[in-house]
Write a protein that binds this DNA or RNA. Structure first.
Lengths: 336, 336
DNA sequence: TTGAAAGCGCTAACAT
DNA sequence: ATGTTAGCGCTTTCAA
């Protein structure tokens, strides 16, 4: 028979409500009593029953995270799990628990409806990959505490956080400009690749401001593969004057890029600086190692969780924020 | 005011216990009544309160997964998250919920103790990375339903599942032998890298059986980096006779290997077949693409969850199993 | 500052 | 096949 609050009350010679107040740090209990109760709890090895607490309280101290967990996602999108790790850390610090629930875009609305109806959680987080109009409607209409990880592809009243890729692009531009590059080029993903598009936008704007505008013919877009990275790089190298720097929208492109540069008999960074975004362990192994604008993606999870906590406290607060925790990791590929 | 079981009972003209039985699919309810109750539930938009159910039942239908969630783990060990995705899928199918809880090896015992004491879950899964003697003791002494993802580094009575790397190695050996290779070599990680060690063991044994034993001087171990992969490969190529195939214990080594082979002016697979384990999207982009023994790591999660379900049903059952869901993905690097 | 007691919504043993 | 009812262990008024 597990120890209950009654046993503690009896042991400490107080009522169960007093014990409950001690558990919950209620102000009205004298320090003397509180100490005695705590001592009894320890002596008895008592821990409150989580289900009973959730039930009595009418709140679970749990948040469920809705996200797509399709096969191989961990390999294709490790970012998402790094965000989740941040979320978990922050929630735990706040005494909340994280439930992971896989779904796809079609079922996410239904899944959310279910969580809300069964009161399975006090709040919902959802990765933008499962965001639908239905889910947005669901969350906003019912005013259920929530936050979306990533900016939805359509305007709505939902709360979200996302990474400021535009700003990251600007950082890259600044770095190259500071290294003396004046004929920078950009290779990126197709236009539906929002992070790439936004990074390009940031690079473009900042270079413009710095007075070394990104020439339109030095912008190439393609698939985010090593091959396309190499292909676009060869195109750039064939132009004259050739660029003195290439910003690659992601690591796949960057690796292809470096390969192509070296195959062309040129030196990185001697003839050409190369940089990219995100810091995959894999991509640190190129020769030379790549300078990168590293997004603290785990911190995005932490921030999202913290924001969710404030939303829980202030249900009418609307949060729509770009996170900008970057750090530039300088490696050889831009050391000139 | 949310709809409760009472409202349904009143609406359907039955007692709450009847409704409860309908919810839980109890055999004793006539189909007619059950249909009427279900109809009422639907009409009223009723969903049972999850906390109340957990509380009344004395069971949560939840499992918590203890694992290390240190910074950058998603990039360094995407496997683990792929396993988690499998676990989640299988648990959900069984009506269970997955709680993710980060911890490290030092705190895992404490974390488990907490989960058990607060009855926060019906079972615990733990990734081998947080496995300690304390955790093992905790789980076995209290006979708390559990399963470890990965085989513990010490013998104990805990339940676990792991991937049969030895068998995977054997598969690789068979494939190369079937391709006519008779002078295979192996490059792997250091001896504390168990997956590498086991893969080597499998390769060695199977080649022995096939009558084309792996020569000791064709086995090189080093760090799992591109550089060491290349370095060891160069060593192998310098030997005479040179090997006609190289099995690389992982993708880092394999990429380094292919690079070194090509730098030496040799052709893959013409002069030398190369293969590896695991199928990272990244490593499919080498030239030529790599043949690989792909471990269905998501399936390991599914299996673990299924086994956990049987452990929940039969608490005395001890599960210690090697999972062997592999498929050989043949690509150009061994096409001879 | 403390205690008594009424729930919270459901399950399950038992009665019918 | 259905209903009655006693909890499950806690929180939270409200009274003292």
């Amino acid at each position: 028979m597990p120890i209950t609050i009654k046993d503690v009350a009896r042991g400490a010679g107080v009522s169960v409500s007093t014990v409950s107040k001690v558990i919950n740090g209620h102000y009205s209990i004298s320090e003397a009593t509180a100490a005695r109760v705590r001592e009894t709890m320890r002596a008895l090895g008592y821990s409150p029953n989580a289900s009973a607490q959730s039930f009595a309280r009418g709140a679970t101290r749990r948040v469920v995270l809705l996200t797509d967990l399709y096969r191989n996602i961990a390999f294709e999108n490790p970012h998402m799990f790094e965000i989740i790790a941040g979320v978990e850390e922050a929630l735990r610090r706040r005494g909340y628990t994280l439930e992971l629930r896989g779904t796809d875009k079609t079922d996410a609305g239904e899944a959310a409806r279910d969580v809300i109806a069964r009161r399975g959680a006090d709040a919902i987080m959802a990765h933008v990959s499962v965001m639908s109009h239905e889910l947005a409607a669901m969350l906003t209409e019912r005013r259920f505490p929530h936050i979306i990880l990533g900016v939805p592809g359509f305007t709505s009243q939902v709360c979200w956080v996302d990474i400021n890729h535009v700003y990251a692009g600007a950082l890259a531009a600044e770095h190259l400009y500071g290294r003396g590059c004046r004929r920078a080029a950009f290779i990126g993903g197709r236009d539906y690749d929002l992070s790439s598009t936004n990074r390009l936008e940031g690079v473009r704007r900042r270079l413009e401001e710095l007075g070394a505008p990104l020439a339109e013919n030095r912008i190439w877009l393609g698939d985010s593969t090593l091959d396309d990275g190499a292909r676009m790089t060869r195109r750039l190298l064939a132009q004259s004057p050739a660029p003195d720097a290439i910003v690659c929208a992601n690591n796949y492109l960057a690796i292809g890029c470096v390969t192509a540069v070296r195959e062309a008999g040129l030196e990185v960074p001697g003839d050409l600086a190369v940089m990219t975004f995100d810091d995959y362990p894999f991509s640190q192994q190129t020769t030379p190692p790549l300078t990168t604008v590293n997004i603290d993606v785990r911190d995005m999870g932490v921030q999202a969780a913290e924001l969710l906590m404030t939303v829980l406290r202030h249900p009418n607060k609307q949060v729509q924020t770009y996170i900008t925790t970057f750090n530039l990791i300088e490696r050889e590929s831009t050391a000139r």
